[in-house]
Amino acid sequence: MHPPPSLTYGFIALTLLTAWWFYRLTGSRAVVGIGFVFWLAVHGVLAYRGFYGVTDTLPPRLALVMGPMLVLALATGFSSLGKTLRADLNLTHIHYFHGIRILVEVVFLHGLFTAGLVAEVVTYTGQNIDLLAGITGPLVGLLVFRQGWLSPTYAIVWNFVGMVSLGWTVSRAVLSAPSPYQQYGFEQPTLAIFYFPFIWLPALVAPLMVWAHCLALGRLLRP
């Protein structure tokens, strides 16, 4: 796999920015920062060595990437395990955080599609609607929590819809990648997410968006 260097180095920078921003949003706890470094290192090394390039296993090895982070997001978002994280959460800034999805969709996924490394179905010109979440997330933060022009109910609905949008996007990526479950992208499958550094998209960037949704909903539904 040979993506343009600008996409490779740019995505490394985006991942580090996403991790740092979320780290700041959750109160700069050392355990969060150490966990992110460990998680990125493990999956980065495995991807670099071609571990995820083996796509005929059941269950798919990609499940090892997203599963633990999604469980952590749900646990800390809706249970007492995340009580401290939710208490310190700035609801305005956690919605601004979703603006990162604009860069993911417009710059990186579309750039990888142009380079022949992801299927069109996972881009905004295909079936990916997550760009809308990236655009509207900061607006929710501004209109609901910064200006107070809209009620928090709008934020609750938006977060549920945003999670559905992200789940739809992830499912398109998984189903367009080479595997026994592939349904899309047979002429140009999604390959980039199996390799370094783009493994960090399903390993950290996308799960952090889910985590942000869960923390916001946990705060709004269990004040």
Rank of each mutant, 00 (worst) to 15 (best):
A216D: 06
I102K: 12
R146Y: 13
I100S: 07
V122A: 05
F113K: 08
A192S: 01
L131G: 05
A155P: 02
Q183A: 07
L81K: 11
H213V: 05
T123R: 15
T84L: 12
T153G: 15
H2S: 03
L70P: 06
L143D: 02
V106T: 06
G137K: 03
I193F: 11
V174E: 05
V54I: 15
V144E: 09
F196C: 00
L16M: 06
L7S: 03
L215D: 11
R29E: 14
A119D: 15
A47L: 09
A47Y: 05
I100V: 14
V170M: 11
I94V: 14
M209E: 10
A41Y: 13
L17F: 08
L117S: 12
G162W: 09
H98C: 02
A19D: 05
L217V: 12
L221M: 15
V31E: 15
L142Q: 09
G99M: 05
R24M: 07
T125W: 14
G141F: 11
I100C: 04
L46W: 09
P138Y: 14
Y96R: 05
H110V: 08
E187G: 11
G33N: 04
R49Q: 14
I193K: 00
V71M: 04
H43E: 07
A133H: 15
R86Y: 09
V121R: 11
L16V: 06
F113Y: 15
F196Y: 01
V174S: 05
A119R: 08
F108R: 05
N159G: 02
A173G: 09
L64D: 00
T18V: 14
T92G: 14
T18K: 01
V42Y: 13
L208A: 07
G35C: 08
V157S: 13
G67S: 09
V45S: 10
K83V: 11
L81A: 15
Y9G: 02
V144M: 10
P207C: 07
L208Y: 08
M69F: 08
D56M: 09
A212Q: 00
V42E: 10
H43T: 07
Y181S: 00
L103Q: 03
P197S: 03
G141L: 10
E120D: 15
R146G: 10
M163L: 12
S28H: 07
L204K: 00
V45K: 10
G148A: 09
Q182G: 02
Y48W: 15
H2Q: 02
V210F: 15
V170S: 04
F186N: 01
H95E: 14
G33C: 05
I34T: 15
L112H: 04
I156M: 12
A155R: 04
S151D: 09
V164L: 14
W200G: 00
L166W: 03
V122W: 08
I156F: 08
T136R: 03
S165V: 06
G116V: 07
V107D: 04
L215N: 08
L191N: 01
L62S: 05
G137S: 13
P60Q: 11
V106W: 13
P197H: 03
G44E: 12
G33A: 04
L204W: 01
Y48D: 12
V205M: 03
T55I: 08
V32Q: 12
L201P: 02
V71K: 00
A73K: 09
G218K: 13
T15Y: 07
I102S: 10
H98N: 13
T136K: 01
Y23V: 01
A177F: 08
C214I: 07
L58Q: 10
L139G: 07
